[in-house]
Simulated assay, not measured.
Amino acid sequence: MIVYGIKNCNTVKTALDWLKSKNIDFEFHDYKAKGITESKLKEWSKQVGWESLVNKRGTTWRQLDKELQEKITSEPAAVSLMKEKTSIIKRPLIEENGKVLALGFDESQYNKTFKA
C-alpha cells in the first residue's frame, strides 16, 4: 500500500498517524520530493475522476489566477496542472495494487476500507 501526499500537510499527518495506530503497513510517497508521473495521474483520474483529484479548497488553487482556474475544465488540463503543481492534488491518496482505496481523510471511511 502506498500513501501519496506531502509530508508537512496536516491531513496527511492525521492519516499517517491513524494508519500507524492501526498497525497498517504502508509506504509513503511525497510527491513534493519525488514528483508524480502523468501516467499515474491519468490512472487515478480514470478511477476517481479528475474533478476529485484537484483540491479546489486549498491554498494552491486559491493562489492561481482566475483565468487559469477557469481553464481547468478537462482531464488533460487538470493532469498538466497537477503534474506542475503537485500540492494541488487532494491528499492523501492511498493506493494498493494500482487501485485507489481512499482520497482525503475520513475516519469512518478508513474504518470501513481498512477493516480497523
Rank of each mutant, 00 (worst) to 15 (best):
K115R: 06
T73Y: 07
G104C: 12
T11E: 01
Q63A: 07
N10M: 04
T113I: 15
S80E: 14
L101A: 11
K7S: 10
K83F: 05
K112T: 10
L93V: 12
G49R: 06
R62C: 09
A77C: 05
K22Q: 09
V48F: 07
T60H: 04
T37Q: 13
G35Q: 11
E96C: 11
L68D: 03
L16P: 00
N55F: 01
T86S: 13
S21G: 12
S108D: 15
S39D: 13
C9P: 04
T60E: 08
E67T: 12
F26H: 08
I88N: 02
E96R: 11
A15M: 09
V100W: 03
F105S: 04
K99P: 00
A116Y: 08
W18R: 09
T73D: 11
F26Y: 15
K22I: 02
A15S: 09
T14G: 02
L16I: 12
K40T: 15
Q63E: 08
C9I: 02
S52A: 06
F114G: 11
E95W: 02
H29L: 10
E70D: 06
P92F: 09
Q109A: 14
K34S: 15
C9R: 10
D25H: 13
L41W: 01
K20E: 14
L19Q: 00
E43N: 09
N111E: 15
Y4P: 00
I94V: 11
G104D: 10
K56L: 01
A116K: 07
K34E: 15
R91F: 01
W18C: 03
I2C: 06
V48L: 10
Y4E: 00
K13Q: 10
D25T: 15
I89M: 11
S74V: 04
M82P: 06
D25P: 13
M1F: 13
E51A: 13
M1R: 15
K34P: 14
L103V: 06
K90T: 00
F28C: 02
G5F: 06
L81C: 05
R91I: 00
A33V: 15
Q63R: 12
K40I: 14
G5S: 02
K66L: 10
S80H: 13
Q63G: 05
F114M: 09
S80D: 13
R91V: 00
E107I: 07
Y4W: 11
A78Q: 08
S52T: 05
S52N: 13
S108V: 09
K115T: 05
S45R: 03
T59L: 05
K71H: 03
N23P: 09
A77R: 15
E75F: 13
A78F: 10
W44F: 12
K13H: 03
L93G: 07
G104I: 10
